[in-house]
Design a protein around this nucleic acid. Sequence first.
DNA 1: GGATTTAGTATGGGAAAGCAACAAACGCAA
DNA 2: TTGCGTTTGTTGCTTTCCCATACTAAATCC
Lengths: 403, 403
Amino acid sequence: MKIAADQTSLRTFNLSLVARLIHSQAPLSRAQLAAMTNLNKSTISSLADELIERGLICETGNNFGGTGRPAILLEVNPNAGFVVGVEFGVDFIAAATTDILGNVVWRKHEAARVAGDQEQTIAQTLEIVKEAVAESRRKKRKVLGLGISTPGTVDIQKGSLVFAPNLHWRDVPFAQIFSEQTKLKVFVENDANAAAIGERLFGSARRVKDFLFVFAGVGIGGGLFLDGKLYRGKNGYAGEIGHSPIMSEPSQNLCHCGNRGCWETYANQYSIIQRIQARLEVKRASVIPQLMAEQNAALDIPLIKQAADLGDREALDSFHEAGQAMGQGLAGLINIFNPEKIVIGGPLSVAGEYMLPAIKKTISQYAMPGIKAQATINLSPFGADAAVIGAIAVVVDDLLALK
Amino acid sequence: MKIAADQTSLRTFNLSLVARLIHSQAPLSRAQLAAMTNLNKSTISSLADELIERGLICETGNNFGGTGRPAILLEVNPNAGFVVGVEFGVDFIAAATTDILGNVVWRKHEAARVAGDQEQTIAQTLEIVKEAVAESRRKKRKVLGLGISTPGTVDIQKGSLVFAPNLHWRDVPFAQIFSEQTKLKVFVENDANAAAIGERLFGSARRVKDFLFVFAGVGIGGGLFLDGKLYRGKNGYAGEIGHSPIMSEPSQNLCHCGNRGCWETYANQYSIIQRIQARLEVKRASVIPQLMAEQNAALDIPLIKQAADLGDREALDSFHEAGQAMGQGLAGLINIFNPEKIVIGGPLSVAGEYMLPAIKKTISQYAMPGIKAQATINLSPFGADAAVIGAIAVVVDDLLALK
DNA sequence: GGATTTAGTATGGGAAAGCAACAAACGCAA
DNA sequence: TTGCGTTTGTTGCTTTCCCATACTAAATCC
């Protein structure tokens, strides 16, 4: 057990506090930081010196214009280094490199048989990571760490995947494998959780204490950011928001969790594809079959989104219906969490603009008036990349913890 | 803003830590505390001295028997004083007095037209509180504070009720009224939240970091205890777990929130009464009409519970069905929160033993295997009194915070 | 160009936890 | 009975870290 606070943890806490403030609200002067934190000016000076010493922040010019002595502005050191992130999807590997502020400097998206061949996928991923590291080296930046986000449950202490039903993977010691091969500090996190951290550090939830990240794709996962930190539950499994039984008619689709009536079966990618298929069977006035033929492509979300872009009624209606289902589930979550914000991201969110109106309307119908008025709903600025950026954010979050 | 940590907050943190450990795991020696907290022995001595000085804990004998010098055992000072708690129900006022460990020394339960006449109800409550205080004085104990729990949303800073739809009350400055009249330190909290704190301090969730208190009665409210503290959401409205839309057939009951299909309409008190009424219309083989006639009583939960005690099929089946509905909602919550525990209490829980088997069975059907295996479900040891005890716990929690 | 204002630094002090040595209080065994 | 080992708790000193105050620095304003 180690729960008490000593002088060192006090220092660490304040160091981290100042680092996070500068990260999220730069540029800031020492005087501003003192006012914001209620710490003494001299204490702030000492903390800032240490952060500069560590290379995390730097002075970046003066703030002329006002009366009095101009402030020396502090901001995150843009030369501190790069961070590499990797996301495992069901049928792709996504990777990116950013600086500490989340500015993307390199990215890659490769199709992969992730759910098929584990060994080959890891080998393929290692190549991508090595490419990212080489690229960083070429730009004369050191790599501060590697973040990995994956569907399924994760042991963040060990840095291993516990079980990902979608991938059919179990007990994969990612941290061990990747740190051995790359000598990097490796972090592993669930995709929705990672995306939530990404949204908090780099995205649309920067100063938000209580928000939910809804990661929509093959399923619907949730990253619960509560009271200023990610909530993981007893074993790190929290956030399985997609499996609330909202309907239980036997007619409904079997969820991959084995039950019927799970919320996500009404609002995930496949539910939309199904809606389209059902519509195409009875009605042919849609550009979708044509698009599929032209592009020799399967019926997937990007394709349906193209159809919607062309004004296709069936595509638009399907997104609308899925949006309603999404909104119904989110209404319940809003009542439960009284969040300040709900952010929607993940693969399905490429069609977000077509779903959002229905989502908002349904929420406003079902959520309790006093609570829903407090919550804003928006799409993640990272869209389908939310989990890659999130993987990077996990690393940056550790840097800012200054442990 | 005041977010940073200084020496004083360090001391407070450690003082509170030691106080809570002693409160929850007494008796403990200084040496044990040092081992548990990783604080230095001398630091623990200093902290213990201060807690003794403040009258919160005391030395209580030695731990002979082992090898080496016997330890001096520390425990909560039983003479520190009493705490008074009050719960507003829809049609009753409940009050109790306990010591700091939650041992009840006095209690009172009065019928009242709470939802009817606000002024009269408050006057009636004041009388009860004064009686409790007089009783404490008679026992030569000082009263350390007054806790008030109420349905609806609460402003805990101001100590006022914001809005309680069930009571038709709005903007009631409880803290102001009661502290003026009694000179006590007054705390106000939502009933489900209070009950959760009570369960954590005195009940079945003592060392549990992540659990949900389900307060079942007129509605179904939730107290969310996450990461070792109560989660309140952006505005303190979190925990409205009863209003997740789980079904939306137009046939269903209108919820008092204005929607149809809310989970709580399938599992609250009224849903059970309705089930019974429907059954009695088509089938007469029940002792319920007879009980109602004998006792000249309305059809309410205690009466239906009596019928169940007599083996009445209709009563048992109705509880069973409501238990299934309850379980369906709880399954979703388990998936969302990955809690260590779910505790069910509140007025409806007098019939808990008849609902629990169905609840557990439904949960085990609908919740995800890996997650549900981690969660135990149990009834609150305080049953229908959970919110009164909770009101007291809110006061004790403040005492243990040592602010 | 001096007054004013705001920013940041230097110095000494105080609070809190750590460390190490020591005293206290028991069991045990010779 | 006495000495030893063992564990507990205290004491005095040290270290760490933040705070208060005074001071220097560097701009604007008049």
